[in-house]
C-alpha cells in the first residue's frame, strides 16, 4: 500500500497537519481524520455538491480533490463560517427562511452561496440559480433556498 504522507493546510483559519494515503479524498480526510463531518457525501463523484468546501476561496467538491492536493492550501468548511458564536448571515437566513428540510445538502449550499456572495454581493435570482446549480436539494424545491440567499445578500429577513 502506498505510504501515508504528512500534509499541512490551513483549515478554517487554523494550521492543521494530517497524515493521509494518496488515494484518500479531501472529503474522507475532513470527515474521518479531522472530524469535520459538516461536508456530506451524497454521491462521491461530483454530481450533488453536498461535500462543497472552499479551497483557496473557490468552491470545490471535496470528493473530487485528493487530500494530498491540500498541501499548503486554505480550506474553509461549514464548521468555520460562524464566527465568535454568531451565525453567519447566510446561516441565519437559511434558518429564518426555513431553507432546509432534511438539512443534508445545507452545508454544501451554504459554502457555494458564501463563495457567490463573496464575489457578487447582490446577485440576481438568475445568477443565484446558475451558480447554485451544482448543489442538489431534493426536499425544498429550491424556492426557500434561493430566497434565503437573496435575503442574506440584501440584509433582509427572508
Amino acid at each position: 500500500m502506498a505510504k501515508k504522507k504528512l500534509i499541512s493546510a490551513k483549515i478554517n483559519g487554523e494550521p492543521r497537519e494530517f497524515a493521509c494515503e494518496p488515494r484518500q479524498s479531501l472529503l474522507e480526510v475532513l470527515r474521518d481524520s479531522l472530524q469535520l463531518t459538516g461536508a456530506k457525501e451524497g454521491c462521491n463523484n461530483g454530481n450533488c455538491g453536498a461535500c462543497t468546501v472552499l479551497l483557496n476561496g473557490e468552491p470545490v467538491v471535496s470528493c473530487l480533490v485528493l487530500a494530498l492536493e491540500a498541501e499548503g492550501a486554505e480550506i474553509e468548511t461549514v464548521e468555520g463560517i460562524a464566527a465568535g458564536g454568531q451565525l453567519q448571515p447566510l446561516q441565519q437566513c437559511f434558518l429564518e427562511g426555513a431553507a432546509l428540510q432534511c438539512g443534508v445538502c445545507t452545508p454544501g449550499f451554504l459554502m457555494t452561496a458564501k463563495a457567490l456572495l463573496d464575489r457578487v454581493p447582490h446577485p440576481s435570482e438568475a445568477e443565484i440559480r446558475f451558480q447554485l446549480a451544482g448543489n442538489l436539494c431534493r426536499c425544498t424545491g429550491y424556492d426557500k433556498i434561493v430566497r434565503a440567499v437573496q435575503a442574506a445578500a440584501e440584509g433582509t429577513n427572508p
Binding site: 470527515r31 463531518t37 456530506k40 468548511t77 461549514v78 446561516q91 434558518l95 426555513a98 438539512g103
Partner: peptide
C-alpha cells in the same frame, strides 16, 4: 426557527454517516 436549526446550518448535526 426550528429547534434543530443551528446544528444543521453549522454542520454539527449528526447524520448516519457522522
Amino acid at each position: 426557527v426550528r429547534h434543530d436549526g443551528a446544528d444543521k446550518v453549522t454542520g454539527r448535526a449528526l447524520y448516519g454517516a457522522d
